[in-house]
Design a protein around this nucleic acid. Structure first.
Length: 333
DNA sequence: TTGTGTTTTATTGCCTCC
DNA sequence: GGAGGCAATAAAACACAA
């Protein structure tokens, strides 16, 4: 059919046309496999003797749109004025129409194409389609309504599939990120353990260094200043700085603030006198032994010292290698 | 042939819009 | 308040396996 006019019947707006309409529609039914409903037209009217009362059953077709029936009476039969003359004739329709009749394949194809164009029905379009297919406008409206419902169901299924796919994709990404996070956390934990172990090792060496520092402080510091020039001068100064750092960080070494030199006198708090005394004493003894220079101010102002950048990668704070080993033997790691 | 599940046609009640 | 849409539902038509 493909959009052509199927039925010669016009709008079934009267009873005589309805006979023709049903007849033609029944002829248009394309039989399916095992289509038990495909019966001769006469059979549709053989049930007139049926005991099933018409008025107690639902109507199959509504003509309200054609006849201007109100919405509250959308059923087919409520739009008719059943007088005595038409009672017998109507009785045949009533029993015939108790059976639902499926639309023909051609009719459905036509409706499908119309639906593709526009899934909503304007009144004029509805009437035109109904005319073209020989159906009641109400039937067309119902078909479009059911078709929209099916379309909506399929659309929901599609949306569900789309969302489900999106969810799966996101979940995969999330799982991957979670694994990466766990891997990084394990890596951080491993590195943290290494850092802690290293710090413990450093702390052990630091304590060892404290005792050696004490020894160092009690030794004459100036035994080679005059012989080794600027490099040694720098090393000594930095050694003093280190001692100061140690003193600050570990006040238990001398149990006082960092010693400082004022007007040529090494000052500490409580132990300053002892320290100075011992220092002076050691220097004196050292002088006696090595005949070295007068006491050297180990806290010489830093601006008086010619600093040099520490060697690359060195942890000796700019010490010369030999000085480093001499003054900080524990820091060789 | 029959039981059962699915699809299609149609009704009903409610809601929204004008 | 009427017209039309929609969700829920009924019921006939249909498909199919046993």
């Amino acid at each position: 059919m493909a959009g052509g006019r199927v039925f010669t019947n016009g709008p079934a707006n009267n009873i005589s046309n309805m006979n023709m309409l049903f007849h033609n529609q029944q002829q248009q039914q394309i039989p399916r496999a095992n289509n038990t409903s495909q019966q001769p037209l006469d059979s549709l009217f053989l049930s007139s003797s049926s005991s099933v009362p018409f008025f107690g059953s639902r109507s199959m077709v509504s003509f309200e749109d054609v006849q201007g029936g109100k919405r509250c009476n959308r059923s087919f039969f409520t739009g008719f004025d059943l007088d005595e003359n038409g009672a017998d004739e109507m009785d045949e329709y009533f029993h015939q129409s108790e059976k639902k009749r499926r639309l023909s394949v051609d009719q459905v194809q036509f409706l499908e194409k119309s639906f593709e164009v526009e899934n909503k029905l304007e009144p004029d379009r509805k009437i035109k389609i109904a005319k073209d297919l020989g159906l009641q406008p109400r039937q067309v409206a119902i078909w479009f309504q059911n078709r929209r419902a099916r379309w909506k169901t399929k659309q929901l299924e599609k949306d569900y599939e789309t969302l489900n796919d999106s969810y799966k994709s996101l979940k995969t990404d999330y799982d991957n990120i979670l694994k990466e996070k766990e891997r990084l956390q394990a890596e951080v934990a491993s590195l943290s353990e290494k850092v802690v172990a290293k710090e413990k090792l450093q702390e052990g060496k630091f304590k060892q260094g404290e005792s050696e520092t004490k020894e160092l402080l009690q030794k004459p510091l100036m035994n080679s200043v005059s012989d080794e020039g600027e490099g040694s001068k720098l090393s000594i100064v930095e050694t003093c700085n280190k001692i100061e750092d140690i003193s600050s960080a570990r006040s238990d070494i001398l149990d006082c603030d960092s010693p400082r030199y004022t007007d040529g006198v090494l000052e500490t708090c409580d132990s300053s006198y002892v320290f100075e005394h011992e220092y002076q004493s050691d220097l004196s003894s050292q002088d006696e032994e090595d005949n070295l220079l007068p006491p050297y101010n180990i806290f010489t102002k830093l601006e008086d010292v010619n600093y040099s950048d520490p060697p690359h990668g060195s942890s000796s704070f700019g010490f010369q290698e030999e000085d480093h080993h001499t003054l900080w033997p524990w820091s060789n790691y």
